[in-house]
Design a protein around this nucleic acid. Structure first.
Lengths: 113, 113
DNA sequence: TCCTGTGCTACAAATAATGTAGCATCATGC
DNA sequence: GCATGATGCTACATTATTTGTAGCACAGGA
């Protein structure tokens, strides 16, 4: 499989060379724990350990990996002494996700049948 | 017995028993190729092979697995003779994602610096 | 000094994805 | 009938990723 070096670190973002940014974004967000991490950071900064706890004790390996990717993508930043938080750009992304919360409620009712 | 814990098949959706549907949804969407598949189905039904092609020739194993999960989640359905398409519920989810397209454009410009 | 918390890493075991091949079924054409 | 091609889907070995546990170096605070 073709690997390309770029924005998301050692692995690269799949589809990023296609010139279709949406593909790069979908690939980035489609990695395990990425969406969850962004979600957990939506309200307040969290330290790496608080983030791990919030994420159901996900292993530090993935969490650190995802945080690195998100930092390189400019969506998350580390405030020394304060933990991680969304950048303005990351917060912008979050906004797109807020409707998801209400959708999830409706969704869980529909599939409960 | 088919509680929420197994809506997505053999593995189940992580966080689904927490009573927080958003967690189940984030877990489902955070699996590789899931977001991409939903995205590719946004306009028209696609056969399983057309979908594979659209998804950069992803292996049939994952594509089928994701399609099974998405079907059980009620987001995608198979129209015999027509291929796969989003259900009304799935289409509703898609709507939440449309802002992502514009965001991706802005995002790719910001990180190009 | 000894705690405690931070960000972060190592490493083996478990799990998931990839790539290739192939199956059964159904429609169409000859 | 018989081949052809497309469909949904699966097997399986190789590779990549995640998990779980342990631990590091550093920075306060008591």
């Amino acid at each position: 499989m073709a690997k390309q070096a770029d924005i998301a670190g050692k692995r690269g973002v799949r589809g990023s060379r296609t010139g279709r940014p949406i593909m790069a974004l979908l690939d980035l967000l489609g990695r395990r724990w990425t969406l969850r991490i962004i979600w957990e950071l939506r309200q307040e900064p969290l330290t790496s350990r608080a983030l791990r706890t919030a994420c159901d004790e996900a292993s530090p390996t993935v969490v650190q990996a995802r945080l690195s990717e998100l930092r390189e993508a400019g969506l998350v930043e580390l405030m020394p002494g304060d933990g991680y938080r969304l950048t303005p750009l990351g917060r912008e992304l979050m906004e797109s996700f807020l409707p998801l919360h209400h959708f999830a409620e409706r969704w869980s009712k529909r599939i409960a049948s």
